[in-house]
Computed example of a mutant assay.
Amino acid sequence: MPKDSKKKKYSQKYKKEWEAEKAFKEWLTSVPGQNSLAFCKCCKSELKAHKKDLESHANTQKHLKKMAELGSVAQTTQITQFVRQTIDDRRKIAELKVAAFIAEHCSVATVDHLGELIKSLDGKSETLKELKLHRTKCMSLIVNVISPCLLQDLMDDVGDSYY
């Protein structure tokens, strides 16, 4: 019997600590259910979970090119492109006042027309020009902003006079 057939073959298993190493941390992850494989997020390919194989993959032209492409995308995309500008405080106050008026005196269905009417009252006022209040937003302001504040005020008043 040849000597080689008695030798047990060692199969390297994926090590989670490799993901923290500088050379691998941006692109390496495990393959669920396959502890002998690793996955390159950059190239979208499975690799053997051998450290030498991973190191050699990191130096391939394909991988280096993909990493460079991803690096340039990450540098050009700024978070400010995804963030909306905040609403002016005067506009917020005006919208809350109109919503409070609607909650106390009218049907929410009338706010679509009332909002347009208020905008046309003064063409010079920036706050009124920017006013954007329709049924959905008005109802949301009443339910999520005005009601909790009024409830808290009521609880404070009742709590003080209860004893």
Rank of each mutant, 00 (worst) to 15 (best):
T77I: 10
K137P: 04
E126H: 09
T76C: 07
Q12T: 04
Q61H: 04
K51C: 05
I118M: 06
L121K: 13
A100E: 10
P2N: 09
S11E: 13
S120L: 02
K129N: 08
K22V: 06
E130A: 14
V108Q: 08
S161F: 06
L150V: 14
I102D: 06
I118H: 09
F101V: 01
S140H: 07
S56R: 15
A49H: 02
V111H: 10
N35H: 13
H57G: 11
K44M: 07
Y14C: 07
V143R: 15
T127S: 10
K92I: 11
Y14T: 03
S107H: 08
H113E: 11
R90H: 08
K92N: 05
R84G: 07
T29Q: 15
K132G: 06
H113M: 10
A99Y: 00
N35I: 02
S125E: 04
G159K: 12
A99D: 01
Y163N: 10
K3N: 14
K7R: 15
Q152Y: 07
T76K: 09
G115P: 01
T29G: 10
L28N: 03
S147A: 14
K22N: 14
S36G: 09
Y14L: 03
E116W: 01
S120A: 15
L131K: 05
L128W: 02
V73H: 11
K25C: 15
K15E: 12
G71Q: 15
I87C: 07
C40M: 10
V73Q: 14
M67P: 02
E104W: 00
L133I: 14
L154H: 13
A74L: 04
K92H: 01
F82S: 13
D156F: 12
S125N: 15
I79P: 05
E116F: 05
D122M: 02
Q81A: 08
E95F: 00
D157P: 00
H57K: 07
Q152T: 12
N35P: 11
T86G: 09
L151V: 11
A23T: 12
V73D: 09
V31L: 03
K6D: 12
S120T: 05
Q12N: 14
